[in-house]
Every structure is written in C-alpha cells, then in structure tokens.
Amino acid sequence: MSSEDFEPEIIAFLCNWCSYAGADLAGVSREQYPPNALNIKVMCSSRVSPEHVFESFHEGADAVLISGCHPGDCHYIDGNYKTMRKAELMKKMLDDFGINPQRLRLEWVSSAEGGKFAKVMEEFTEEIKELGPLDLNGTSLEGENDE
C-alpha cells in the first residue's frame, strides 16, 4: 500500500473529564481534523491496561492514543501519573514486540484544549501515515488461531 492512500486506524482512549471534554470542545469550536481515530471513553486514563493497547494492535490498529488530564489535574487525584508510568513500560515492551513505540502516544489534553486535541489528532495521523501500516501478519505463523 502506498503511503498516500494509507489511512491509519487509530484507537484513542480518552478520559472522561479532560480529554473527552477537550475532544467535545474541538467539536464545539468546529476544529477540523482527520477522522482516523475512533474514541473509546474511559473514566480515567489509568483504567487503560496494556492489555487494551496490545489488543488494539493485535486487532489491527496502526496506532493507539491514550489521553488524560494534565499532571496534577486528574479528576481522580493521581490516575494520570499511573498512566504515565504504564505508558513508559508499554513503549518499552512494544519495542520488544517489534512495534515502533511511536505508534503509542500519550497526550495530556485538558477540557479547555479543543484546539490541542485537533492538533494532536492531525499530527498523530500524519506521523502514522509516514510510518506506514503496521503489518502484524506478514510474519505470522500458519495455523495460528486468532479469534
């Protein structure tokens, strides 16, 4: 697939209080950004487990975004610090799995940052377009029995 007609599939985990609200505000402000990401709302970014991220890649996502409140702003006091550390570990592990850690992005977007949300979407989509599709099956074993 040439990189020009490649449309990355992105899963975006957004926390309810800041980033989901920021995404809403981007709408209210009629920001325009590429439609590649599909948002999944969680109450707090700390709910996102590596399992969810790995499953996303395994199921065909080209990239995953986790977005929460800015450090110190977490609605649940300190959830985003946990997310920060988890994301760091996930990136290391993705690297070992042969997946470019750039495909996992952690962003702090507040509920007042509609513009930033749009910008993150735009940048991230561009970045992943440049990286190209994530091909997980090229080296997959025959007889592998995925569900």
Binding site: F57, F97, G98, L134, D135, T139
Partner: peptide, 13 residues
C-alpha cells in the same frame, strides 16, 4: 500465549 505472542511488528531488531 500472550496477546502479542511474538515479535511481529515491522520494526528492525
């Protein structure tokens, strides 16, 4: 037996 199972992405080692 994990989700990723093996090194499967396109990143060089």
């Amino acid at each position: 037996s994990s989700i990723m199972q093996f090194r499967r992405g396109d990143l060089d080692e």
